[in-house]
Amino acid sequence: MKTPSPALACRLEAARSVVRDAARMAMAMRPQPGGPQGELKAAQDWLTETDGAVEAFIAGRMKALFPDDGFEGEEGGVTRTGSLRWVVDPIDGTSNYARGRSRWCVSLGLLEGDEPMAGVIEAPALQEVYTSLRGYGAFLNGKPIQASRVAEPSRAMIEMGWSGRVPKPVFMEKIDAIMELGAMPRSGGCGALALADVASGRLDGYIEIVINLWDVAGALPLLAEAGARVSPFLRDGGLTGGAVIMAANPHIAQTLSDAVRIPLE
């Protein structure tokens, strides 16, 4: 069995440790259930004190560990450049987090140029940790995962993320197409975990019309290693701005792609 390069293996192990500590911090700061606590950046786009604190913690730790690596965060933007670049979403699913709900996560991905290499996604309130290293598998709590084998649309579960940046007619067109297939639509409010659900077979597909790199960086290597098919998010502008993403199990991916008119790689 081949083994990963020591440099990448070291980085994945370090990322796992840093994300674990960051997730503990986020849990300690999590609001009690109830009305949302935080500030609105835009319609339904929440920012909490925890977002900034967790990102600063991760940024500081990764700089100390790998000072030559680049770093990009949702709140702070690109703070360092390098051939290897860490991309963090300190709290993905902030609208859930701000209300004391459980479906949120800390996501950290590693890119080499425009190639996703490794990812760690921890959902501490769910007691789940996803890890992946390109070429060496995808795991949930240490156990290998694969995309589902569902091929019949009437048996499929498809999630679609909502964003205020997407016109309502566009959103409804895609939802209608999903329902016309006979699939069951879902929306959970956390893009990184939805993509992880596709990788683990809990969902058969996920679509979001405008999503950012920090939302997906930790999940892209997970999807690749789990055998899912993904639209060309990075090629189509995801490295520098918002872009569309569709991920699906390989048995239903083309059918879903044709229905919602989002091409696959």
Results as ranks from 00 to 15, higher is better:
Thr3Lys: 12
Ala9His: 11
Cys10Pro: 00
Cys10Gly: 13
Arg11Thr: 06
Leu12His: 08
Ser17Gly: 05
Gly38Cys: 03
Leu40Ala: 08
Leu40Asn: 08
Gln44Pro: 00
Thr48Trp: 13
Asp51Tyr: 07
Gly52Arg: 14
Gly52Asp: 11
Val54Trp: 06
Val54His: 09
Val54Ala: 14
Ala56Gly: 09
Arg61Asn: 02
Met62Arg: 06
Ala64Asp: 15
Asp69Gln: 02
Glu74Val: 06
Thr81Lys: 15
Gly82Pro: 04
Leu84Pro: 03
Ile91Gln: 03
Thr94Asn: 05
Ser102Met: 06
Arg103Lys: 08
Trp104Ala: 10
Leu108Lys: 05
Leu111Gly: 11
Leu111Thr: 09
Leu111His: 10
Pro116Asn: 04
Ala118His: 03
Glu128Tyr: 00
Tyr130Gln: 03
Thr131Tyr: 02
Ser132Cys: 11
Gly135Ser: 11
Phe139Lys: 04
Leu140Phe: 04
Ile145Gln: 03
Ala147Pro: 08
Ser148Val: 02
Ser148Ala: 02
Ile178Lys: 00
Ile178Val: 15
Leu181His: 02
Leu181Trp: 02
Ala194Pro: 01
Ala199Asn: 02
Gly201His: 03
Arg202Ser: 00
Ile207Cys: 02
Ile209Met: 13
Ile209Lys: 04
Leu213Glu: 06
Asp215Thr: 08
Val216Glu: 00
Ala217Ile: 05
Leu223Val: 00
Arg229Leu: 15
Asp236Ala: 06
Gly238Trp: 14
Gly242Cys: 10
Asp258Cys: 03
Ala259Val: 13
Ala259Cys: 07
Arg261His: 14
